[in-house]
Simulated scan of single mutants.
Amino acid sequence: MQTFWTSVVTFAHTVTQQVGERLLTEFGKVQATSKSDGSLVTQSDQWADHYLRQAIATAFPDHGVLSEEVEHIFPDTDWCWVIDPIDGTTNFSRGVPIWGTSLGLLYQGVPVFGFVHFPPLGQTFHGFWSAPEQPDGAFCNQTPIHTRPDAPAGNQCFSLCARSLSVLKNPFPCKLRMLGSASYNLLIVAQGVTIGAVEATPKIWDIAGVWPIIQAAGGAWISLAPDPIFPLTVGQNYSQVAYPTLALSQDQWVEQFVPLVTSIGQPPATS
């Protein structure tokens, strides 16, 4: 099994580096268009999605694929890769250097390995969580990472997404930041930079790669929706399913923060 995991890490590193090299040449130079859900897409997203799917089919022909741009239905395979070719497409198209490529490897519908590469930042995260015959661990540029032990305070940072501004209606115990990339918002919790992060409407490709990394680094992942996120369901179309999420540096802060962000996971009131 160790040989398998060595091949998985090597593959993820190689293919995201290859994709990143080309994307850097297109960074800030491409036009974006709106998709049906209001998010943006560029030709770079579509190229990267295709390149990653083809690479996985060659290296792991018995593995399934779920991707943001093409493959939305969860396949009937034990192993499945979940692809976000460019997380932070708005940043990418506007020249803001916080974007990356995310890969999550699921076993029986649950992420056990994540790999996320941010070319402009020179940062590459990966991690294992409850992977078969593989120790848990989280890393940035091959160096182990861990969440912060600090208590919430006015000098600690917490990340929001653009759709989670409703938390500002109440006093908040941390300094707030907004970065424009769901995976980076969440991963800097794992890295010990922020004490927490919330994402209001991430899709499965936004979170599959970071889910194992955050928990392996010592963090807590809290779904703000009533139903559990994993395992995924064979045959379900995940193109329009959102997973409001709270990530925290420590389990002990869950009771303090959940009441502050619960409204993010609730449907809007109707008149």
Rank of each mutant, 00 (worst) to 15 (best):
W221I: 14
G154A: 13
G122Y: 00
V9P: 12
G122R: 05
S67I: 05
Q191M: 12
Q46F: 03
L103Q: 01
E68N: 03
Q31W: 09
L179N: 09
I229C: 13
P226L: 14
Q240F: 11
Q108V: 12
E133P: 01
C140A: 15
W221N: 12
T124L: 07
S67Y: 08
G137A: 07
R53W: 02
D62F: 06
I73R: 15
L168W: 03
C80N: 08
S164D: 12
V96S: 11
L66V: 14
L121Q: 15
G122D: 03
G114W: 00
I195H: 08
S34I: 12
T194K: 04
I83H: 00
W79E: 01
L24S: 13
F257K: 12
D78E: 15
V241A: 09
Q256F: 08
W79P: 02
Q191K: 14
N155D: 10
W205A: 02
L23N: 01
D136H: 13
I229Q: 03
V19G: 01
E26R: 01
V261N: 00
L179W: 13
M178Q: 07
L260Q: 03
W211T: 05
L52F: 00
Q31A: 08
S130F: 13
T124M: 11
Q240K: 15
T201S: 07
H117R: 08
P61E: 15
N141I: 04
S183Y: 10
Q236W: 14
W99R: 01
V41G: 06
S39H: 08
S249G: 04
D87I: 06
L186D: 02
G209C: 13
L103W: 08
F139W: 12
A151F: 04
P173M: 10
Q31L: 07
V70D: 03
D227Y: 06
V210W: 10
L40F: 10
S239G: 10
P97F: 02
V15C: 14
K35S: 06
R53A: 04
P120G: 05
I207F: 05
N170C: 13
V112M: 07
I145P: 03
T143E: 15
P244K: 12
Q252L: 13
E133V: 07
T33L: 14
H50D: 10
S44L: 02
L160N: 05
R53I: 05
L187N: 02
H13E: 07
W211H: 00
I213P: 00
F172S: 15
P85A: 10
S36G: 11
T33P: 01
T6K: 10
P173D: 11
